[in-house]
Nucleic acid binder design. Structure first.
Lengths: 150, 150
DNA sequence: CAAAATCAGATTGTGCGCAATCTAAATTCG
DNA sequence: CGAATTTAGATTGCGCACAATCTGATTTTG
């Protein structure tokens, strides 16, 4: 059966390795984020807003590679939770500018505990971890280049 | 702002690298799988069934790390599409055994074109690709060990 | 300037993913 | 054997993801 070399073997495919690892991350984060009342995608939005705000929805989408069909309801929920503020840009009525509320900003301090805890769970030393991040980013770039024939 | 070393910087986090790479894979696969009328999770189920069938739902879940809440409706859709057959096991009425139909088996031949096409899109040589698969599997194991304190 | 094209978000519909709960069957144990 | 426990799947409810479509604002162009 030589499953080791079967191209259709589940455990030989990079896609499933990425898929299942992303799910594993999601599960681990869920445990840490439940204390903050956040889902993982909501946490990602806050990471973007903590770096730079206010930003239009489009910019968040570019950064996280998500479209308005995903972001609009997600941001509405976060606004209802009191974490962010959305308002139309006066200079361009098409845009909706998003920024963290005071409560959303306050979460940043509590979130600082996460990266070290997660890094520990990976069992990787800082260099290996950094290399893996770069490898995945390179891979992602190549996949997207092949996935979006403009 | 030395974003290069900010632990909360989006681009410094392994989780986002994994999350966004998995999405990029999903997008690329969608293009290739649309010709077969499959979604990516449905393709994963077939990979499992092509390796070994019939198998109970539980075994598919163990293999793909998905629970019945995800699999039951997914498998029902695949049964409606005529790709798989589900039937209660006679020796244990709790189990539902799943196996590919003739149509589901026939898809395997058409699916053989996928792995080479995807491998090409990754731009990775076979060794790098294999190493990355192993690194991700190791990482996944560690994450799951930390995510499920029994 | 006005029509056409582009762009930002919102909306709709479908398919995962998962927690929580439920049912029925099988196993364990007193 | 019979009650308690465990197990396999199904169900419900919610939150992403994304394609497709729609609306209204802005930009481009003829």
């Amino acid at each position: 059966m030589t499953a080791d070399h079967d191209p259709l073997g589940l455990d030989n495919q990079l896609c499933f390795a990425a898929y299942s690892t992303a799910h594993a991350f999601n599960r681990l984060y869920r445990q840490h984020l439940s204390a903050l009342g956040l889902t993982y995608p909501q946490y990602l939005v806050l990471l973007v807003l903590w770096e730079n705000a206010p930003v239009p929805v489009k910019a968040i989408g570019d950064r996280l590679m998500l479209d308005s069909g995903t972001l609009t309801p997600l941001l509405k929920r976060m606004e209802t939770m009191g974490l962010i503020i959305r308002e139309r840009a006066s200079h361009d009525e098409r845009q909706v500018l998003v920024r963290p509320s005071t409560a959303g900003l306050a979460l940043k301090d509590r979130a600082r505990a996460l990266p070290p805890a997660i890094a520990c769970a990976t069992g990787l030393d800082p260099e290996s971890l950094g290399r893996m991040v770069e490898d995945l980013q390179t891979l992602r770039t190549r996949l997207l280049a092949n996935a979006q024939p403009e």
